[in-house]
């Protein structure tokens, strides 16, 4: 059982990982930080219980995912970012401020269907096995495998638009 005072250590150790995971989903660093803070704020209010969990970070990850998805912002942001990326692709010379989404991988991720992007991010970025993704997403393991395979295939196809990424 962890003590309440250990929340600070837990928070500092895991904040960046959650931000990275949500940023990969949303394509927006600021939005990702907002979601991560909300998830950790909820964890803080329940820390007396979460501290007893074997993996409290799994709870935070799951809540952050739900927030990102339920908020509906992600879809709007992704559409807007995809449109911006499309325009940038036709007009060489991206702005430095768009560095996050305009890396080849970031741009390719945003072009994946949401259901595929989610499992790809959890598998390759959060390093979760299929059964853990299935628990987080509430999906049968077989569905996760199917989406993972399709997502990887689409990701490779999208990355092919960016030769430097596959060189």
């Amino acid at each position: 059982m962890r003590h309440c005072g250990e929340f600070g250590e837990f928070y500092e150790a895991n904040y960046g990982r959650i931000v990275a995971m949500i940023a990969a989903l949303l394509g927006d660093r600021h939005e990702a930080e907002d979601v991560a803070q909300e998830a950790f704020a909820r964890a803080l209010t329940r820390w007396s219980r979460l501290a007893g969990y074997e993996l409290p970070e799994a709870w935070v990850r799951r809540v952050a995912l739900r927030i990102a998805i339920d908020s509906g912002r992600r879809r709007r942001r992704a559409r807007a970012t995809a449109a911006r990326l499309e325009a940038q692709r036709q007009t060489p010379g991206p702005e430095p401020g768009d560095a996050l989404s305009f890396t080849a991988l970031g741009a390719a991720l945003l072009r994946l269907p949401l259901r595929e992007r989610e499992v790809v991010v959890l598998h390759y970025l959060a390093d979760l096995p299929v059964d853990a993704i299935a628990r987080d997403c509430g999906l049968p393991p077989g569905t996760v495998k199917t989406r993972l395979a399709a997502g990887r295939q689409h990701l490779e196809k999208e990355l092919a638009h960016f030769p430097e990424a596959v060189a």
Binding site: Y11, V19, A20, Q37, L44
Partner: peptide, 19 residues
């Protein structure tokens, strides 16, 4: 891709409390 994001410094816990 994720390295700079993982290094993101968290805001103080007081910010979370207010949230």
């Amino acid at each position: 891709w994720a390295r700079p994001l993982r290094d993101t410094a968290p805001p103080p816990v007081a910010v979370l409390r207010r949230r």
